[in-house]
Design a protein around this nucleic acid. Structure first.
Lengths: 153, 153
DNA sequence: TTAGGTGCAAATCGTTTGCGAGTAA
DNA sequence: TTACTCGCAAACGATTTGCACCTAA
């Protein structure tokens, strides 16, 4: 919390950059909203400071990300989703209803190990959401129409 | 192959839809290109039929997807990536150099099992690319001595 | 004759860029 | 003074929509 803020201020200062109200507000919004799009973050910031432009939000998110304070995740089709860096988990996105579940990153530890050993690939478990069908939609699908592939057999 | 084409024709007919040259060409392009964005698919189609509009490509891809003939994958920030449904594997995308590797879906079998048992979530292994650092970029990063503050997305 | 299919232009969404003005060190 | 910051407008890339025309059943 405060730690990140001081870390940010120091990191900015080291690079000759300043801690501004806008940057403060954007960081606060990211932390409070937990998962939010630039649009949502902007709306939140504008509650306190209506004059802040969405361009500034984009620029600030980009900066905060380069400083390692926030990260973004692609949850699916639309806009990316920002959260503070400490807030780590794997996202499960239902491609039918769009529901997003969060599960611990440890679930990917084995996979990360295989990818590293076999392909030299360092998995970043938090950056991308896993897609599939949630319990409800998987059940619904089983009782419904089938796809072309399935009908073909 | 011919099989999919006939299957498609039948599926279309069942729904009162027609097999048109455009649809044929789009499907051919998706298959030939293996992984391609709507833009690339359109370009390919226009080699044979320059008048075909990108709008038609989008509409056709959407239709083919609903029929289960093609699928799309989000490889990262930009446009989605279409391939025929049979063409299955997991994508590993390097978030530094953008390189895309393909690995067998079996790697995710264990994970898919856990997600199903513990969360009722049916993983679709092919829809999303896994993000991380490829061998080269992981090595480069280590020698650069990046600090926490310098970590990048 | 009617539903389906297409092309074209315009709209939309998310994001970036150019630029001029403001402000802290 | 000199960077750095910001807001605003415009540009931009990807995709969608509205609409008129056209064609197969």
């Amino acid at each position: 919390m405060v730690k990140t803020q001081e870390t940010l201020r120091r990191a900015l200062h080291e690079r000759g950059l300043r801690m501004t109200p806008q940057r403060q507000l954007v960081l606060d919004a990211v932390r409070e909203l937990e998962h939010a799009t630039p649009e949502q973050i902007c709306a939140r910031v504008q509650v306190q400071a209506p004059a802040v432009n969405i361009t500034t939000v984009y620029r600030t998110l980009d900066l905060l990300e380069r400083l390692g304070v926030v990260r973004h995740t692609h949850l699916g089709h639309g806009a990316p989703n920002y959260s503070v860096r400490e807030h780590q988990h794997v996202h499960l996105v239902c491609h039918d209803c769009g529901d997003v579940a969060e599960v611990p990153t440890e679930l990917l530890d084995d996979l990360a190990g295989s990818l590293r050993d076999r392909f030299g690939f360092r998995l970043d478990a938090t950056h991308v959401a896993l897609s599939g069908a949630c319990t409800a939609c998987a059940a619904a699908r089983r009782t419904e129409g089938r796809t072309l592939e399935e009908a073909d057999s």
